[in-house]
């Protein structure tokens, strides 16, 4: 009963409650600061020895203690770019269809099914990639691409299966649900008057969607795409299992490659020297900074569109 609580005890209770909550809230920035500090300490040795040349070096030889991360950075960027080229049109098509065209009863179920894709663990994508996707690509898709688009350097050379393109395709499947669900949210936030005005001027339904609705949500959609990019850059397991893990920069997408996340996954347990550990931590440090920048940009863009709405654009 509230009446029985003495006034002093009440204040003590409030004080204790607020203190506990504050400790929990302080823990969040403290953890992140601690993470940055530990990564810095861990990579200090490599930063001092290689400096920024680490980023432009192409040779990775743990035995000779030579570490250059350029092929890794190249692989991370290329696989993420392939993923976006495939995933962006698909997820935008689905998002526009679900908000503007689909029958009402089908919208929620389709959105739910696609969001289920986001719940599948990365390692399961990798497993499926090794035993289903790679054989399909090696026997059917890659030869077809080489026959039709083989005049481009991108689609030349021997076909192994495990390759940059395979990693890009699995990444596309994995980032699609994120881009789709955030784009859908920002499209839903576009005022109905935008659509009505365009339709009232005689636009077809597609023209109304493409010229009145999509431009209105432009920066939010860009935010969704950059959020997907952030996911693709940091994705580890599925890429490690499909990309072929070779330290080289090849023009052909059929050739194996390597990414920053994958090299950490593969070499961290095998590293024997301090400088090897330090170089791998340096890679993690670099990857961390790239993803922080990418995500900050995405949040800013999404926030600009959905501010003022009660249930902001956090989405995922």
């Amino acid at each position: 009963m509230p009446g029985e609580v003495p006034l002093r005890g009440r204040n003590l209770g409030d004080l204790a409650f607020k203190t506990l909550l504050t400790i929990a809230a302080i823990a969040i920035p403290a953890l992140l600061a601690f993470l940055v500090w530990e990564l810095y300490l861990g990579s200090k040795l490599a930063i001092e020895r290689y400096g920024l040349g680490f980023i432009s070096g192409t040779n990775w030889d743990p035995v000779a203690e030579e570490f250059g991360a350029l092929p890794l950075i190249f692989g991370t960027l290329t696989s993420a770019a392939i993923a976006l080229v495939i995933a962006v049109p698909l997820s935008l098509g689905v998002a526009i269809y679900l908000t503007e065209f689909a029958p009402k009863w089908i919208r929620q179920p389709i959105a739910f099914v696609i969001e289920l894709l986001a719940a599948i663990p990365s390692v399961v994508y990798g497993l499926w990639g090794i035993f289903v996707l790679i054989p399909l690509l090696r026997t059917a898709v890659f030869p077809f691409l080489r026959d039709t688009l083989g005049f481009l350097p991108l689609f030349q050379g021997p076909i192994y299966g495990n390759s940059m393109l395979a990693a890009g395709i699995i990444l596309a499947i994995m980032v699609m649900p994120y881009i789709m669900s955030v784009s859908r949210e920002v499209l839903l936030a576009v005022p109905t008057s935008q659509r009505e005005a365009a339709l009232g001027l005689g636009a077809t339904r597609w023209e109304a969607a493409w010229t009145a609705v999509v431009p209105y949500a432009r920066s939010g959609i860009l935010g969704a795409i950059i959020l997907g990019l952030g996911r693709a850059l940091g994705e580890t397991m599925a890429v490690t299992m499909l990309i072929g893990n070779r330290h080289e920069i090849a023009a052909s997408l059929f050739a194996p490659g390597y990414t920053m996340a994958a090299v950490i996954a593969n070499e961290f347990t095998e590293a024997a020297t301090d400088i090897h550990f330090s170089a791998l931590t340096y890679v993690a440090f670099t990857l961390f900074f790239v993803t922080v920048l990418v995500n900050a940009a995405a949040r800013l863009l999404i926030w600009r569109v959905s501010r003022g709405r009660p249930s902001g654009g956090q989405g995922v």
Partner: peptide, 27 residues
């Protein structure tokens, strides 16, 4: 503190899980 915690949580949400693994390893 709430504004900071919220922002940092968004940053951490986008941090690759392998990087968090490296953190736990060093720690």
């Amino acid at each position: 503190l709430a504004v900071v915690a919220r922002f940092v949580a968004d940053v951490m949400n986008g941090t690759p899980s392998i990087v968090v693994g490296v953190f736990a390893w060093t720690l």
